[in-house]
Deep mutational scan, measured.
Amino acid sequence: EEERTFTNEEEARKAKKEAEKRGLRVTVTKDGTTWRVRIG
């Protein structure tokens, strides 16, 4: 499991799409101005 943080919503969405392409489970949460993308 890996967690990545982004300040840019577009980049967070891109990371989510890429992980889904690899067949991984992805959770995206917004924490104030930060987007957290949890993969795995």
Rank of each mutant, 00 (worst) to 15 (best):
E1K: 08
E1Q: 10
E1V: 14
E1M: 14
E1D: 11
E1I: 15
E1A: 13
E2Q: 11
E2K: 08
E2T: 12
E2A: 08
E2Y: 15
E3Y: 11
E3N: 06
E3W: 13
E3P: 04
E3S: 08
E3V: 13
R4I: 14
R4Q: 11
R4G: 05
T5M: 10
T5I: 14
T5D: 05
T5F: 13
T5E: 08
T5A: 06
T5L: 12
T5P: 02
F6E: 01
F6W: 02
F6G: 01
F6I: 01
F6P: 00
F6A: 01
T7K: 07
T7V: 08
T7S: 10
T7D: 13
T7F: 11
T7L: 09
T7P: 08
N8S: 13
N8E: 06
N8G: 04
N8T: 13
E9M: 07
E9R: 09
E9D: 03
E9L: 11
E9I: 10
E9V: 08
E9A: 08
E10H: 10
E10M: 11
E10T: 09
E10Y: 13
E10V: 09
E11I: 02
E11V: 03
E11P: 01
A12P: 01
A12R: 00
A12F: 07
A12I: 01
A12Q: 01
R13E: 13
R13L: 15
R13S: 09
R13W: 15
R13A: 10
R13T: 12
K14G: 06
K14L: 12
K14M: 12
K14T: 10
K14W: 10
K14P: 00
K14Y: 11
K14A: 13
K14R: 12
K14H: 11
K14I: 11
A15I: 06
A15D: 02
A15Y: 15
A15M: 09
A15W: 15
A15N: 03
A15R: 03
K16H: 07
K16V: 15
K16P: 00
K16T: 10
K16M: 15
K16N: 02
K16F: 14
K17Y: 14
K17M: 14
K17Q: 14
K17F: 14
K17G: 09
E18F: 07
E18H: 06
E18N: 06
E18M: 08
E18I: 06
E18L: 07
E18P: 00
E18V: 05
E18A: 09
E18R: 05
E18T: 06
E18S: 06
E18G: 04
A19E: 02
A19V: 03
A19C: 11
A19Q: 03
A19N: 03
A19S: 03
A19H: 04
A19L: 14
A19T: 02
E20H: 04
E20T: 05
E20L: 08
E20C: 06
E20P: 01
E20Q: 08
E20M: 08
K21E: 13
K21Q: 12
K21N: 11
K21R: 13
K21I: 10
R22G: 04
R22Q: 09
R22W: 08
G23W: 03
G23K: 03
G23E: 01
G23N: 04
L24F: 12
L24D: 03
L24Q: 06
L24R: 05
L24K: 05
R25I: 10
R25L: 09
V26F: 02
V26I: 03
V26Q: 00
V26L: 02
V26K: 00
V26H: 00
V26Y: 02
T27D: 04
T27E: 07
T27P: 00
T27G: 02
T27K: 06
T27L: 07
T27H: 07
T27Q: 06
V28A: 01
V28L: 14
V28D: 00
V28C: 10
V28P: 00
V28R: 00
V28F: 06
V28Y: 04
T29Y: 13
T29K: 06
T29D: 05
T29S: 07
T29R: 07
T29H: 08
K30Q: 12
K30F: 15
K30P: 04
D31T: 09
D31V: 13
D31K: 06
D31Q: 08
D31N: 07
D31L: 08
G32T: 03
G32D: 05
G32R: 02
G32E: 05
G32A: 04
G32P: 01
G32M: 02
T33K: 11
T33V: 09
T33Q: 13
T33E: 15
T33A: 12
T33S: 12
T33F: 12
T33Y: 12
T33R: 07
T33M: 11
T34E: 09
T34W: 11
T34G: 09
T34D: 07
T34H: 12
W35V: 03
W35L: 03
W35F: 05
W35R: 02
W35N: 01
R36M: 07
R36A: 04
R36D: 01
R36P: 02
R36G: 01
V37I: 08
V37F: 04
V37R: 00
V37E: 02
R38V: 14
R38D: 04
R38K: 11
R38F: 13
R38N: 08
R38G: 04
I39F: 08
I39R: 01
I39N: 01
I39V: 07
I39P: 02
I39T: 05
I39Y: 08
I39H: 02
I39G: 01
G40D: 12
G40T: 14
G40S: 14
G40V: 15
G40Y: 15
